[in-house]
Design a protein around this nucleic acid. Sequence first.
DNA 1: CTGTTAGCGCCTTCAA
DNA 2: TTGAAGGCGCTAACAG
Lengths: 362, 362
Amino acid sequence: MAASTLTEVARLAGVSPATASRVLNGSARIPGKDIADRVRQAAESLGYIPNAQAQGLAKSSSGLIGLIVHDIADPYFAAIARGVQEAAREQHKMVLLATTVGAPDSEKEAVAAFAARRADSIVIAGSRTSRAEDLEGNTELAAELDRYCRNGGHVSVIGHGIVGAAAADGYHVVNVPNEELAAHLATELATSREEDFVIVGGPEGLFTSDDRIRGFQRGLASAGLPAADVIRTDFTRAGGFEAGLALAARITASQPGTETKRLCIFAVNDVMAIGAAAALRSQGLRIPRDAAVAGFDDIETLRDFRPALSTVHLPLEEIGRQAASRAAGPSADDAGSPPITGQVILRRSTEVAHPTSAESVA
Amino acid sequence: MAASTLTEVARLAGVSPATASRVLNGSARIPGKDIADRVRQAAESLGYIPNAQAQGLAKSSSGLIGLIVHDIADPYFAAIARGVQEAAREQHKMVLLATTVGAPDSEKEAVAAFAARRADSIVIAGSRTSRAEDLEGNTELAAELDRYCRNGGHVSVIGHGIVGAAAADGYHVVNVPNEELAAHLATELATSREEDFVIVGGPEGLFTSDDRIRGFQRGLASAGLPAADVIRTDFTRAGGFEAGLALAARITASQPGTETKRLCIFAVNDVMAIGAAAALRSQGLRIPRDAAVAGFDDIETLRDFRPALSTVHLPLEEIGRQAASRAAGPSADDAGSPPITGQVILRRSTEVAHPTSAESVA
DNA sequence: CTGTTAGCGCCTTCAA
DNA sequence: TTGAAGGCGCTAACAG
């Protein structure tokens, strides 16, 4: 027993399908008042639900927003997804989800799938990469997106634009000032401190990571400090943990006698920072006494972590929302939404050690 | 410039649309070898992407899985979503996301929207409620689901079944043994301890919460202990925090002289537990010294929280995956997937206070 | 094995 | 204002 159709409703109401359509979905005036009620009633009694596929086919638009993330369980992406979802709700659309593991070819597939479903727009979150091995994948992805745009689709990419993507119509980028913010964080951290800085970064070629590293180094430089060592590892908690272990060894080794500066560790995202902190702790080191740790993103779920993590707040939800609404066209706010900004937040994890202040909570 | 169609491909290849369809999508044999290649090449050169809407309309099935959650940014739901997403990928389907704030009527809308899109199946996560004020909403939701099922849809609900939903065809429930596990947690906690138990629960009528409360009380009873006080609050971190504040006052008040037992707080989910812990800490109390805290769910992102939180591990991802594949029909594993089980995990937050063990990490 | 003929359910000109 | 007719892109029966 398939769902009832518009035709059935029309028949029951004693009108033509066209009329029924106008009453139930169309936009133009339908003052048939008497007839309109009959149709509505018929629809109601039949439990009529319009077939979105058919509607979409007829007017070639689907009311779908495609969202591509690396992993929906990652709090970073989950927060963005929430923003996208909210925007979608406002636009009376639904979001179609695709998760790739950052692999460009898998992203390409997702774009093709969205294109097949005639998604009205696509939001791509998750960092772009410039690694040589991804070059081909990136090119194909760019081509796929380009085709999608040429067919009238709207794309908005969060962070960096797709490598090799021509600035086509309907192609937007929501810029996140990773570099500037990282620089800002570095200068804040460099102020009135005397410590060695180390950066725990993701794999080379990951834009988000590279931008943050570059920015941090720049900030250090502008504060007259030497460049920090950079440890490359996975862009995950596990990666942070691994790096943390190495750093713990380094700290422990330099303990005896030598007047050592405290280590200040900047992990390019919060999750890595937490991993690094866990590693230090597992080696009996304490934060911020033995080392300072800072992250990036200000993930909500991690805010109760102790010692409270210094980080850079990013309005993730707003980023997602903006990406989704920008792709919807310049409808609402012609002025365009305001650029994304972040904010350095210094908390306990990078406090200068005051031996006595045990209870100071950020 | 709209995307190219199958007809165009067919024309370019000099064959009929039907043939082209068979080559590009159909399943039956298409050994036209020579012709098949021509078609494929034509498709390639035109950048042909099948229109899923049209395909869906023609074969009345959409390749879509609808997922309903309260909030995709909540790590609990995000983890489930990951599981659903994985199952979807295996089924070569895509997931359509809808977030409700737990409001039955909003869930009803989501179901209708999924039905409109002819989703092949729907997964509903997020706790069911039995509050009087939700009765009407629940009934409508049940009706909507029932209709959806009658039209051939498959539904699987995580946790409790929808209140008032008749066991229709295609309606499945993925049971989560909340009560048993909570009971188990209680008995573990009750062993060799002498403390007062308090439960921080969600609003009355929330099945997930109520089940866990009931189970915990049962466990306490079977250990010969009196029932614990129950504090009702929001099913969120903020709720946990609020309750934690009240409890902190209670603890502080009873400090002087009176031989007081330590308080053991069971929050019905991890996020609430974290909130409660934060509240205690904000009042200068320490865990587990001044109070023990336990949660439920074993949220991954929270595992680095210190003191490590005792909790009940739930295979969230597997739950999502199972829900999605069960709804896909008894295709893969006829034996049906194994029932969901959890596991009590005792960590630092409920350790019996050993004044000297400062570095014992769970 | 391939082409032809009908729809799938809806919307949208175009007449009436 | 309402109805009739055609088409959105594809698939599924039939023919050939």
